[in-house]
Simulated assay, not measured.
Amino acid sequence: MKWHGTPLSGLTVIETDTVADARGRFVRVFCDAELAALRPGLHFPQINLSTTFARGSVRGLHFQRPPAAEAKLIRCLSGRVLDVAVDLRRGSPTYLRWHGVELSAEQPRQVFIPEGFAHGFQALTDDVQLLYLHTAAWNRDYENRLRYDDPRLAIDWPLPVTQVSELDRHAPLLDDQFEGVEA
């Protein structure tokens, strides 16, 4: 595994080697020993799989506040997405900046999103599946979301947005009361 920094400190793209032959491909998704240099003691008590049927659909932007803040390791298992992380860390030099990474089933890469970031994605193809490894279990009491189309974030979704959940559509816009999160 090789990791590459992004313009947002802590947000990391992880390239994984692919072994391929006539039978198919093999890719290691997670290895304690290799990822210890990125984050010692990385532990994932919850793993989720999302399926998004239609190209143009957006999921997010989701995050959990402390004490249930979570880091995520995201990998695309089928299709292609623009995976987006927004820095919500109070005092960060990149506070409220976003960065997008294209993930696909054909690329041997995944993205590590640390605590203090909101996460979302847009399906660039039909029938997308994402595998999420979470460092904390989902907790309704600490769940939060931001609007995918918040003008203050100005996320440049590559396709017209075709579908969004009701919860995501009615998420709050950022205002002067938003103080970010402690990470």
Rank of each mutant, 00 (worst) to 15 (best):
A36Q: 11
A123L: 12
G60I: 02
S9V: 15
V13Q: 01
S104H: 05
Q110H: 12
R90F: 15
H99C: 09
Q46K: 10
R65E: 13
R80W: 05
E15Y: 10
Q122N: 09
A20E: 12
S104C: 08
R97L: 13
T6H: 08
S92E: 02
R65T: 15
P45G: 07
R55F: 07
D17A: 09
T52E: 07
L82D: 11
L8V: 09
L77F: 09
N48S: 10
R65S: 15
L82Y: 12
P40L: 01
R90V: 15
L11F: 06
I14H: 00
Q107M: 11
F26D: 10
F121A: 01
G120P: 06
H4Q: 12
H119I: 06
L103G: 00
V81A: 01
C76H: 05
R80F: 11
E106V: 11
G41L: 08
A85E: 12
W98D: 00
L82E: 13
L35I: 05
D32C: 02
G5C: 15
E106P: 02
L103H: 02
P67E: 06
F117I: 13
V111R: 04
G24M: 03
F121M: 03
R65L: 14
C76R: 00
A54G: 15
A69Q: 07
L96Q: 08
D21A: 05
L96D: 06
R55D: 10
L96I: 08
V27C: 12
Q64Y: 03
W3E: 08
N48L: 07
L42Y: 07
R89C: 11
S78R: 10
E102A: 04
F44S: 01
E15M: 10
Q46E: 15
D32K: 05
R65V: 14
G91E: 11
L103Q: 04
D17V: 06
L82M: 14
T16M: 13
K72Q: 07
Q107G: 12
S92K: 04
S104P: 02
P66N: 01
Q122A: 05
R55V: 07
L42E: 11
L82W: 07
L88R: 00
L38Y: 02
R65A: 14
R90S: 15
I14P: 03
C76Q: 01
G5H: 15
A37N: 08
P45W: 09
V101L: 07
A36F: 02
I74A: 02
R55M: 12
A105D: 03
V81Q: 00
L77D: 08
G24T: 08
S104Q: 11
F26G: 03
K72R: 14
S92G: 08
I14D: 01
P45M: 05
T51F: 15
P114Q: 09
K72A: 01
L61F: 12
A105T: 01
L61S: 10
P67S: 10
E70K: 06
S9N: 15
H62K: 13
T16K: 15
T52Q: 09
T16Y: 12
L96P: 04
A68F: 11
V19K: 08
P40Q: 06
G24W: 00
L38Q: 01
V13A: 03
G120F: 00
A68Y: 06
T52N: 09
S92M: 10
V29M: 05
R39Y: 05
D83N: 08
G120W: 01
A69W: 05
V58T: 05
G100E: 09
E102T: 14
T6P: 01
F26M: 06
G116C: 09
I14V: 14
P67V: 10
W3P: 07
H43P: 07
E115G: 09
V86N: 03
T18L: 13
